[in-house]
C-alpha cells in the first residue's frame, strides 16, 4: 500500500524528518506516536501533499506510484485521505456540495459517471446516521461554527463517503471529549477492511484504546526510534517518551 524509504524532509533549511522508513500493507493500522515537535504532523502533511516542505532524500511509494510527485487532489482521488488535526472552516461552501464535488472527482478520475443525485443522498444520509450527526450538518457551510467534536466527526463523515484506501488521521483525538471520541472511533472501526489501511498520528495513547493498532511506531527527532505492537503504546503511556529520547541520545 505505502512504502516510505529513507525519507528526509526540510522546512526551509531546517531538517524535520531525517530518514523515515515505513511499510504499510493493506488492512493494517499503524499508529505514529511521539512527543511534540518530533515530526508527526510533518509526516502526515508530506503524505497528503501540503506545500511548504522540501523532500531532500528518499521516497514514498503508494500503490506502486511515486506519491510525492502527485498534486494533493490527485493523491486524494487515488485514495489518500487526510483527516485534519484542525479542519478548516469554509464559509459559503456547503458540506453536501463539497462531498458531491469530491465524490464526483474521484469517480471521474476512475472513468466513472457522476453519481446519481438520489443515490448520493441515500449514501450520505446513511453515513450521517452512522456518525450520529444531524442531517442539518449537510446543508451548513463546511465546518463553519462547528464545535471541535463536530469538526472531527465531519472529517470521518467525509472519509466514510469517499472510501479512501489510505487514511491518515492527524491527531484526530485532540480536542475530543470521551463521547465524541467513542463516536469517531466507532466510525473509523466501521471503515476497517482488508484493503484499507490507516496511519494514526497521535500524541496520546487514549485513541488506541478505541482503535486497536497493528503496529506502533515512536517518532522522535525526525526518526522512528522504536516500533512494536499495540503493547508499545501502553509502555509509552506508562513511561512517557523521555526514555526513548534518552536512549537515542546515548546510542
Amino acid at each position: 500500500m505505502l512504502s516510505i524509504k529513507n525519507l528526509h524532509v526540510s522546512v526551509g533549511d531546517k531538517p524535520i524528518l531525517k530518514g523515515i522508513n515505513l511499510e504499510i500493507k493493506p488492512g493494517e493500522i499503524h499508529a505514529i506516536m511521539g512527543p511534540n515537535g518530533s515530526g508527526k504532523s510533518t509526516l502526515s502533511h508530506i503524505l497528503s501533499g501540503k506545500s511548504g516542505y522540501t523532500v531532500t532524500e528518499g521516497s514514498a511509494t503508494y500503490q506502486g506510484k511515486d506519491l510525492l510527485e502527485m498534486p494533493p487532489e490527485i493523491r486524494a482521488r487515488e485514495g489518500v485521505f487526510l483527516a485534519f488535526q484542525y479542519p478548516v472552516e469554509i464559509p459559503g461552501v456547503s458540506n453536501v456540495y463539497l462531498l458531491k464535488a469530491a465524490l464526483n472527482s474521484i469517480r471521474k478520475h476512475h472513468g466513472q459517471s457522476e453519481v446519481d443525485a438520489m443515490d448520493f443522498l441515500t449514501l450520505v444520509k446513511g453515513k450521517v446516521r452512522l456518525l450520529e450527526m444531524d442531517e442539518k450538518f449537510l446543508y451548513r457551510a463546511v465546518n463553519e461554527g462547528f464545535s471541535g467534536g463536530e469538526k472531527k466527526r465531519n472529517e470521518i463523515l467525509q472519509m466514510a463517503i469517499l472510501e479512501p484506501k489510505l487514511c491518515i488521521l492527524d491527531e484526530t483525538d485532540s480536542g475530543l471529549d470521551i463521547d465524541a471520541l467513542k463516536i469517531v472511533s466507532e466510525g473509523v472501526n466501521s471503515l476497517r477492511s482488508p484493503d484499507r489501511s490507516f496511519v494514526m498520528v497521535t500524541h496520546y495513547q487514549r485513541l488506541l484504546d478505541y482503535i486497536k493498532p497493528d503496529f506502533v511506531h515512536v517518532l522522535a527527532n525526525g526518526q522512528i526510534v522504536k516500533s512494536g505492537g499495540a503493547e508499545l503504546a501502553l509502555e509509552l503511556e506508562e513511561k512517557g517518551y523521555s526514555w526513548l529520547e534518552d536512549a537515542e541520545a546515548s546510542a
Binding site: 497528503s48 487532489e73 469530491a102
Partner: peptide, 18 residues
C-alpha cells in the same frame, strides 16, 4: 484567498483552480 482553505479542498479531491 486563504491557502489553508485551498489545501483543504485539494485534499478533498478538488483541483487548485476549482
Amino acid at each position: 484567498l486563504d491557502e489553508k482553505s485551498i489545501f483543504y479542498l485539494q485534499s478533498r479531491c478538488v483541483d487548485e483552480e476549482t
